[in-house]
Nucleic acid binder design. Sequence first.
DNA 1: AAGAACTCCTGTTGGC
DNA 2: TGCCAACAGGAGTTCT
Length: 294
Amino acid sequence: MPELPEVETVRQGLAPVLVGNRFRSVEQRRGDLRFPLPKHFAERLRGRKVDALDRRAKYLLAHLDDGEVLVMHLGMTGRFSIDQANGASLEFGEFEYEQRPAPKHEHIVFHLADGTVVRYSDTRRFGLMDLITRDALPKHPLFRGLGVEPLSQEFTPKWLAPKLKGKATPIKAALIDQRLIAGLGNIYACEALFRAGISPLRLAGSLTTKAGKPTKAIEALVKAIKAVLEYAIKAGGSSLRDYARADGGLGCFQHSFKVYGREGKPCRKKGCRGAVRRIVQSGRSTFYCPSCQR
DNA sequence: AAGAACTCCTGTTGGC
DNA sequence: TGCCAACAGGAGTTCT
């Protein structure tokens, strides 16, 4: 479900209730999500304090006081909801127009020491949770191959150009490859390409010169990726009716989509008379404007 | 060995 | 109305 901006929004929502709090008990209602949950999952969490809640790519990382890290990935339909000790209820990770998840898909329930209850539900169960020691994290299979954080200083045209050099895959496919850029997904790859005026069909390697140097197109692309992610984070990810009301001031990024989900609709670029087209690349929908993305 | 297809799972939507 | 194929924000595994 969520891409980097949504996971970051979830992190910002969960951090105030998790950090500094302890797990009083954890209900584990099934043995697996996408993968089997680790051995003695609930028991290993009981009594642990959360020291920090970080994000890496689309993963949430809860650093525990025993040196282990609770690793969480929301897959396509994972979401958290919070029942606060005072009775209020908040939703985090409920995007678009989806309703509150059915209890049948509520798989993990965290009971915190202060009475707050954090529920994880995941209809399709493409999410995952694991417990990994902090030291083992960098070389763990889930993390060792991850690429650059697109919002970091490290991610520049100079960094990207040599990575794309010689690549025969379409740029759209390269952008959602987590080994290259960690956290971009289908929506923001489409949106960034639109903003950069680059066709998703263009081969990744064509964005560099023979020497592997950045072109104007690559500079525009890096700028567009950072801008769209930053804007989406500021907007609180995608729409979330209850969340916006509870937290105040958080917008709905879906209203800012220029191409995603807009097949057949007019291009929103000023002066462009094209219509948004939908194609399939590597089994995923790509939306773009053929007349202003080249 | 890179790149694309297949796979996991459940629910919703649109066409006939 | 029913049925069924297509599709959904991900990504590891298996093919070619």
